[in-house]
């Protein structure tokens, strides 16, 4: 690749990141007045959160069950299958819960947010608000952003609970690990900072995924193809950013 082309891509990348950062600050400013209308935010928590519940619960159950099977098989080699509860809990709380919830959130709620706002742009609803002297950032973007940020940790918590149930189902019911050992080992080994790590991660992922979803919808081309493209960009960008942020946060927590 020639230097000129490389510089062009770099410049475009920096420009886009700058645009998202400015958009983020504009939304943060509008979040303050948006909290004056809690009904809008509660509706968006329902929209992004409650409507993603089934997929989150199903995924949590299967991830937990796989974790139970793989964990049991691995721990059995060392004769320590009784610690399956600890392994499953730590894996879910610190890593799988927040990350998989964020990836599912990007695919389910993120795409819905982008296409909804994109269609509002395409059908002049956002322009109509501006002409009515109502800032669409305050009325449309901020409540959806806040709804996503609040919903993400709640969804991750539900994912973790169902995941633990799935691991227990496989480990205790199917593989015959002692129920008491499963739960007591978990209680002894899981610390508060493990829970904190998961909550912080899911909050950060909530900010990242909601910001990308709202930004892409808000700036989508007002055509059918434009909205489709924006929706795809939401999934790709949210997924990559989630995994990148996960590495950074994991490194920070392990060093800290």
């Amino acid at each position: 690749m020639s230097n000129g082309k490389y510089n062009g891509y770099l410049r475009e990348g920096v420009r886009r990141m700058g645009a998202v950062a400015i958009f983020f600050f504009r939304i943060l400013i509008q979040c303050v007045p948006a909290t004056g209308r809690p009904r809008l935010i509660v509706y968006q928590i329902f929209n992004a959160g409650a409507r993603s519940l089934i997929i989150i619960m199903l995924a949590g159950l299967f991830v937990g069950m796989v974790l139970g099977l793989q964990g049991f098989e691995l721990l059995q080699r060392f004769g320590s299958e009784e610690t399956l509860g600890t392994a499953a809990a730590l894996g879910l709380l610190r890593e799988l819960g927040p990350v998989i919830t964020a990836l599912l959130f990007a695919g389910r709620a993120g795409t819905a947010l982008t296409s909804e706002i994109g269609l509002m742009r395409a059908t002049d609803q956002l322009t109509a608000m501006e002409i009515m002297a109502v800032d669409p950032l305050r009325y449309v973007a901020a409540p959806r952003f806040l709804g996503g940020v609040i919903a993400m940790p709640l969804l991750a918590a539900i994912f973790n609970i169902i995941g633990l149930f799935g691991a227990q189902l496989v480990g205790v019911q199917m593989m015959g690990i002692d129920r008491g050992s499963f739960w007591s080992q978990m209680q002894d080994s899981v610390e508060f900072r493990d829970v904190t790590e998961g909550v912080v991660k899911s909050l950060v992922f909530g900010v990242a995924c909601s910001l990308i979803a709202v930004h892409e919808g808000y700036h989508s081309e007002p055509t059918a193809a434009g909205v489709g493209l924006a929706t795809t960009r939401t999934v790709v960008a949210s997924s990559v950013l989630t995994l990148l942020l996960d590495y950074v946060l994991t490194a920070v927590f392990i060093r800290g």
């Binding site: 509002m120 059908t123 002049d124 609803q125 322009t127 109509a128 608000m129 501006e130 002409i131 009515m132 002297a133 109502v134």
Partner: peptide, 27 residues
Amino acid sequence: LRKRMGMLFQNGALLTDMDVFENVAFP
């Protein structure tokens, strides 16, 4: 300045998540 203007869009541009009453009450 815009509060002193009204605009009718080609497609109406009604807010699709509200009923007719709430659309008119919105401003």
